[in-house]
Amino acid sequence: MRKTAFLTIIPALGLPALALAGLATFGALMPESFPSKRTFESMAFQMPELGLLTLAMFLPFVSAGFNLSIIATANVSSLFMAWLWTSRIPADAGAATQAVWLFLGFVGACAVAAAIGAGIGAMAAYVGVHPTLTTLGVMTLLKGIGISLTRGAPITGMPPAVQFLGNGTFLGVPMPLAVFAAAALATALVLGKTSFGKYIYMIGSNINAAYYSGVATHQVLIGIYVFSSLMCALAGLVMTARFNSARMGYGESYLLLTVLAIIMGGADPNGGFGKVWGVVLALFVLQIISTGLTLYGVSQHISLAMWGLVLILVLAVKYCNRRWYAPWALRRQAEAVKAPA
């Protein structure tokens, strides 16, 4: 038995192996520039916004839903914050006044996001519309609102405290990374250790059976999309802070990457299964490859094409695992159990 136990662990080793392979490859290709403090710092500053958006996509994904409007929600909430901070904070405000306004701005953005999420969740719960379709409408609406209010122009000039959140470090840890770590931990706790989280997995597999067991599916669905939208607001905050501005259209290319990270992280495309740590690991892998490619001078368009190919490849590998490897490993284990007896 012990001899064959490793067989079922092999698929789980894929991501760490990929991370190491990425580090080794880029280290060998660019021994001067890649293995440097600057590289890893830039990774640490870049990953969180994608990471937060991925977390925003993750809960809907596990519940067998989808959220197309994550980026639009993030942008609208960041526009709200930026507008409040740039237009309402007096230039000569003291630290206390500033803090109050900063807090109000963030809470306000969260409220906006929560309202959006509640609407999406309610459409799924009370009307029965698939969230992909609702979020399609919501995305169109939010983009329209955002662009017609700003004419597509960015809102710039954030207060110093916000800029620190985007570019500063605390005890050597980049602030965005700290925010992401906290958010990932919170998501992991919610999914793994609360009844709400357990309900999300159950709903992802069979919402009606969960309902018959007394799960308040309507409330859970609304909760899922509110949580998702709050993550978007957080992503919006980090983006605003890092770019020192807010604009409709930031981060538009992230949708594919969020899905890629989730699927690489081991989540079931049909819902019901998936763990936060897998997604976080996948995000690290993606960031290593992305930074490496950028340093190597690969164009962003090639990277985009490559991400698409990688996602297809990951799906193919998963298919092979499901179709051939997993049954084979199970058989080997069954034989190993039988043999000594």
Binding site: S195, K198, Y201, M202, S205, N206, A209, Y212, S213
Partner: peptide, 24 residues
Amino acid sequence: LALGLIQPQSVKDNMVLTVMDRLK
């Protein structure tokens, strides 16, 4: 199959689904 149990999920989670709040 469709309503009584959540077939793809574990025996464990199915069994405690109704009393999740009491395991806190």
